[in-house]
Design a protein around this nucleic acid. Structure first.
Lengths: 197, 197
DNA sequence: CTCGAATGTAGGCGCCGACAACAATGCTGT
DNA sequence: ACAGCATTGTTGTCGGCGCCTACATTCGAG
């Protein structure tokens, strides 16, 4: 039986992150334990300590990876040739889809617990993500399709609405399909406002 | 010395809830421990078990109490005699203020972990809270100040935006004062939309 | 090929939540 | 008045956790 694992795992760090994300998705943040992850990876309970100084460090790494994936999703969903409303809708749908099937991960990404160290990388990641949306807004402003004003404010409004919907969906207050189905109407309302014209 | 506490605490349940909320506010959800609460209340580590079957039960009770306080805040902030935009602004400000200085509690209230038992009460509490906003929307619709359409959809949009802003503020992505200061503009944008008129 | 750095192991500490067995107290019906 | 039961609190224990330290194995640069 050559199947006695080698002393060194080979890529424990990645294995831990992968396992952590699986657990996150299947059982939630609360059920995440370093010892359990170590068991799944077939190493001793202290081995994870070699790769993550503590549990929070692993969560930070997880969040960072999440920003990468989200950023990629948004980038590939953004089509600058589309007319404004459809462009925004596509972006919104992409964000919402990510938020819905990465609910726990997204919560981690937004958690305000990152040490000053990781915070820098985190802030950069956030900026990159927000940038996708801000770009669309700024473009539309240049073309006169959107009212003037600090683009950051308008981005904030738009982003907040999306995040709010995502939050409702994650909290069970809104069925995920309903959230996705309602996107077109949502974007329309956002653009045209609640008041009659 | 008569100062040996009586065998019975008197109102341990309330004391635990109060202590829990203090801890929640000061150190966050993660730092909340039943044993610690018991210590603070001057009882043995198992005493809390008499009042809350497990930790989640205490969290549920905390969330319920939170809904009560939020509902009260919203009710007393709603002034039906105000014109629409000012009325909405006042309501929004009230919600945001609550969200900002009860961030951890609000997170608990939105957490999707409530047992089927408590879920009923929880759902009722949510409905009551959402009702405050829905009432304003419905009133405005009747007066023709807001476009027609399912009031629940419009409420969803408005609520989502508020919750999103609150979420950004809680996550440190937006300074709390900035959030509160931006409310008027935010409500205005919501009513009039992003497109030029 | 050696020796230090990187990685994994074994054991232990103090904390936690949950449970069970037992003790003190409050309350209700008679 | 008080017996008996339900309520509330105590002590002790169990397994699990995160984190730390001391030690073992392997890798890789010189």
């Amino acid at each position: 039986m050559p199947e006695s694992r080698p002393y060194h795992h080979g890529d424990l760090r990645s294995a831990l992150l992968a396992g952590a994300e699986r657990t996150l998705r299947e059982k939630g943040t609360g059920a995440l334990s370093l010892r359990e992850l170590a068991r799944e990876a077939g190493v001793s309970h202290a081995a994870p300590g070699r790769h993550f100084k503590d549990k929070q460090a692993l969560l930070n790494a997880l969040a960072l990876a999440g920003y990468d994936r989200l950023g990629q999703a948004l980038d590939s969903a953004d089509d600058a040739t589309l007319p404004l409303e459809r462009r925004l809708t596509a972006l919104a749908r992409s964000y919402l889809a990510f938020a819905i099937d990465n609910a726990e991960l997204l919560e981690l990404m937004y958690a305000r617990k990152h040490e000053p160290d990781a915070s820098e990388q985190m802030a950069a990641a956030v900026d990159r993500t927000v940038g996708s949306l801000e770009r669309v807004i700024a473009d539309a402003q240049e073309r006169g399709e959107i009212i003037a004003g600090d683009p950051q404010h308008l981005t904030l409004l738009t982003g907040a609405t999306l995040q709010g919907i995502a939050s409702f969906a994650a909290g069970g207050m809104l069925a995920p399909e309903a959230a996705l189905d309602g996107i077109e109407e949502l974007v329309h309302l956002l653009l045209h406002g609640l008041k009659p014209r």
